Amino acid sequence: MSDVSETTAQERPAPTLSYPFEKGPEDGQAIDIAAGVKWLRMPLGGPLGFINVWAIAEEGGWAIVDTGMGGAETMHAWRDAFDGPLRKRPATRVFVTHMHPDHVGMAGWLTRKYDVPLWMSRLEYLSCRSLSADTGREAPSDALRFYRGAGWDEDSLETYRTRFGTFGKYMHVLPDSFHRLVDGQEMMIGDHRWRVVVGSGHSPEHACLHCPDLQLMISGDQVLPRISSNVSVFPTEPEADPLSEWLASLARIKSQVGDEVLVLPAHNDPFFGLHARIDHLISGHEQGLLRLQDLLREPKRAVDCFSALFRAKITPGLLGMATGESLAHLNCLIGRGLAARETDANGVAWYRATA
């Protein structure tokens, strides 16, 4: 269940980033990133293969940042990690950057196993609880209307009905309480002070962790070196403009976090070159908006817009992600006054450029 995209088209050449580690940690192993900070990987199905997680030494054990997908395979991986590179020292607390299952999936298991608190932003915690509550439900009529309006055919809608309500199956139940992470908040984790830097767009209140002393930033999915975070509109908030939020968040992170940091992302490898990567991500999406605006010289549905935004063929397995991203770009153009939407008698939304 991936929450990042490898399909976003970006014509501008990628920036030259620096990767200080030749390879990532092997199964059951860890790499020392800085004094008291370890890099581990947890298994993850699909093309990404794994998710990076982080352990920060503090009195009595390890603060864990992100947890991997829920399930037996990841549970065994964590047991091997604590028995091996974490030297049988327990978790002291668990930090989660955001609510997607590959990040929060094992948080409930870890916090209960070690009887430690969960640290998470409020919107991420509550959104996760809300989505988990859909587990086992039938697909709501609002959601079916939403995707029908985007141009989905009946076969695609039937697939959605079949797959709806599986979010909670990828995670252990969250604890019933949490410690809130807030933008700008500073706290001691181990021997160093870390600051919370919140982004939005990929998820509601994504919490990065920045340590100026160590010149590190744990970026979660907010800034990734080789792939672009999925930024989507969902049926729960059809008028949302997450792309504008994401672009603004990236610009704000660039203004607040120095370019000297080693970025510790959830996917791919740690890298130097934060500001260049942010500029490239912003530019790529702005170019996509220009291509989309040009495509809308003739009215189009959301599913007709993939060619302007993605270089990869959109298979049925990617349809939901691609539709959400297309709608994010369309809503962004509407918010800028550059496009308009009209709904036909069948409930299908058609978009056209207005400038």
Rank of each mutant, 00 (worst) to 15 (best):
S132I: 04
A150D: 01
G136Q: 10
D134G: 09
Y125M: 05
Y125V: 00
C128G: 14
D155P: 03
R129E: 11
G149S: 14
P140N: 11
R148W: 04
L126P: 05
D155F: 07
L131P: 02
Y125Q: 04
Y147P: 00
L131T: 06
A143Y: 01
R145H: 11
D155Y: 06
G149V: 01
Y125G: 01
G136H: 14
A139L: 12
R145F: 06
A150S: 07
L157P: 04
L144Y: 08
E158W: 10
L144E: 05
R145D: 09
A150T: 02
G136F: 12
A139E: 14
A150E: 00
R148L: 02
S141V: 13
R148C: 03
S130Q: 15
T135I: 09
E138M: 12
W152Y: 15
D134H: 15
G151E: 02
R148E: 05
P140I: 05
R148Y: 04
Y147N: 04
D153M: 09
A143N: 03
R137M: 13
E138S: 13
L144C: 06
D142K: 13
G151C: 06
A139F: 08
S132F: 07
D134Y: 11
A150L: 02
L126F: 10
G149D: 02
C128H: 04
T159P: 00
W152N: 00
W152S: 01
E158D: 12
R137Y: 09
G149K: 03
P140Y: 08
A139M: 13
D153N: 15
S127R: 06
D142W: 12
G151N: 07
T135Q: 15
G151S: 11
S156L: 10
D142I: 06
R137A: 12
D153I: 07
L157I: 06
E158H: 15
S141I: 05
A139K: 05
Y147D: 01
A133E: 13
S132M: 13
S141R: 15
C128E: 03
D134N: 14
R129W: 08
C128V: 06
C128L: 07
L126D: 09
S127D: 03
L157Y: 07
R129V: 10
S130H: 14
Y147V: 00
A139N: 12
C128T: 09
T159L: 07
E158Q: 13
E154L: 08
R145Q: 11
R137D: 09
F146H: 05
F146G: 02
Y147F: 13
S141G: 11
T159Y: 08
G136S: 10
D142E: 14
E154N: 11
D142R: 12
A139C: 15
T135K: 13
P140V: 02
R137W: 11
G151Q: 05
W152K: 03
G136E: 13
T159D: 10
P140W: 06
T159A: 14
T135V: 10
G151K: 08
S156W: 07
